Amino acid sequence: MTNTELQEFTASVRALLTKHAGSAAVRAAMDTDLGYDPALWRLLCEQIGVAALAIPEEHGGVGASLVESLVVVGELGRVLAGVPMLGSAVLGVQAVLLSGDAAACDRLLPEVAEGTRTLAVCWAGESGWDETGVQESGGTLTGTARYVLDGHTADTLIVLTSTGSFEVAATAAGVARRVVPTMDPTRKLSEITFTAAEAHRLGTGDPAPAITRLREIAWAAVAAEQVGAAARCLEMTVEYTKSRVQFGRPIGSFQALKHRMADMYVLLESAESASAAATLAVSENAATAAEDVWVARLHCSEALNTIVAETVQLHGGIAITWEHDAQLFFKRAHGNAQLFGTPRRPVALTS
Rank of each mutant, 00 (worst) to 15 (best):
L44P: 07
A64K: 10
R232G: 06
M85A: 08
A221N: 09
R249P: 07
W129G: 00
W294K: 04
A102K: 09
T241K: 12
A24Q: 15
D184V: 08
S127H: 12
V134Q: 00
T279N: 10
R213N: 12
E5V: 05
V13P: 02
L202D: 09
A120N: 04
I211C: 13
R187D: 02
R27G: 00
A29M: 00
A29D: 00
P250G: 06
F330C: 12
I251S: 04
A21T: 06
L314Y: 08
R344F: 13
A303E: 03
P110A: 03
V79K: 02
C233H: 03
G174V: 05
E58C: 13
T32G: 00
R244P: 03
E302K: 12
E111H: 10
G248M: 10
A199R: 05
R201F: 09
V93S: 02
L234F: 02
P207R: 06
A218G: 15
P185I: 01
L160R: 03
L257K: 07
V72S: 01
A326G: 13
G100R: 06
H200D: 15
R249G: 09
A287G: 14
T116F: 08
V179K: 09
Q226H: 12
V179C: 04
A274N: 05
G139L: 03
V148W: 02
G87N: 04
M183D: 14
T156G: 06
A326K: 12
R260L: 14
D292T: 08
F247K: 14
Q313H: 15
T132L: 02
A224Q: 06
K258E: 13
P343H: 10
A220R: 07
V168E: 01
V159C: 07
H152F: 03
G115E: 00
G164A: 07
E68Q: 11
L53G: 04
H324V: 06
A271Y: 02
V96F: 01
V222E: 05
W41H: 11
S88W: 01
V295S: 06
L86M: 14
A220P: 08
T241F: 10
V282R: 07
H334Y: 14
G125V: 05
Q226D: 14
A170V: 01
G128Q: 05
D31C: 03
M183F: 13
E323I: 12
V83N: 00
E291T: 15
V121C: 09
T2K: 10
L70K: 08
V62N: 13
A54P: 06
V134W: 01
